[in-house]
Design a protein around this nucleic acid. Structure first.
Lengths: 151, 151
DNA sequence: ATATTTATGGATAATTTTGTCTCTAATTCT
DNA sequence: AGAATTAGAGACAAAATTATCCATAAATAT
């Protein structure tokens, strides 16, 4: 559904929200290890999440690291998608039609729009805070996926 | 949600199901133009859809081309995803966790599972035939999308 | 049989996404 | 002030996806 980058962003943000705080900032090494993402790539992603302090905040130097302000924790999960420039995924036509709409619906439109509506709602009503408090004990954030060639 | 390849596969299959028949096979040029996909790339995709005559059938030579048997039209849309090796997209965890489950749910699991269920159902109950009969007049299958760099 | 038409298969190229490395800038501590 | 620590930024590399090209195989028509 989302790109690897956005998956990492979701995991990193929620992990930071749960484990960190302004007093206890988390370093990129800890974050990357915790969520099972490549360190340097994750650092890049953090740059997207931190610019303009929109979602995540960062402080350099000793005892520096990443944290999420209490205010930012009230942002909807969608804010993470926005920071990653993938919020359009929620609105997209299943068949990839640019012009899919009520006026010119693709064959799946009428059925999918109901699902899309719930999907959008999920990302808008759920806040980062709510999600971070929903992490169950023993849940591993690590994902080791591999893909084979298809064509 | 899906790869470009799979989007093209969905569009091509449904287009062929609606416009073609065993008596009136459609050529790759017509198909690619109709659905707004690159010709040669679409030819590759057709190879995936036609192997073992699972979804689409193909005949070479003059008056040859692609068509979908009446039997295949009764296949669920999911069969297209399977031919493209993307059926897992329907089951995937939103956050990309390999081990996301009832036992070890990611923070979005409980809410998303309801949506996922509907998504799976949509792809299983809807047949290619049903979708092909749902194409509204004047609907353009063409999509001209562009992407910018994110990182 | 031959020419024509159409898909097939393989190699290759372009683009995008993912991932790495290194040097720099900011911050803190002593 | 200087050393240490941490994120930031840029160039670069690898891998996956998307796209193109060309020679070949199969089928038809003449």
């Amino acid at each position: 559904m989302f790109s690897k980058a956005t998956e990492y962003a979701l995991r990193a943000t929620i992990y930071i929200a749960q484990k960190g705080s302004e007093e206890n900032k988390l370093g990129i090494n800890e974050i990357a290890e915790a969520i099972g993402s490549p360190r340097s790539f994750t650092a890049k992603i953090m740059q997207l999440l931190t610019r303009d302090h929109r979602v995540v905040s960062a402080v350099r130097g000793p005892n520096g690291g990443f944290y999420i302000s209490e205010k930012s924790k009230n942002l909807p999960v969608r804010a993470i998608l926005e920071a990653m420039g993938e919020e359009h995924v929620l609105d997209k036509c299943v068949m990839g039609l640019k012009l899919c709409s009520e006026k010119q619906p693709c064959p799946m439109h009428s059925k999918y729009k109901i699902i899309r509506k719930q999907l959008i709602k999920l990302f808008v009503v759920k806040t980062i805070r709510q999600l971070s408090s929903e992490i169950k004990d023993g849940v591993v954030f690590i994902h080791q996926g591999k893909k084979g060639k298809k064509i």
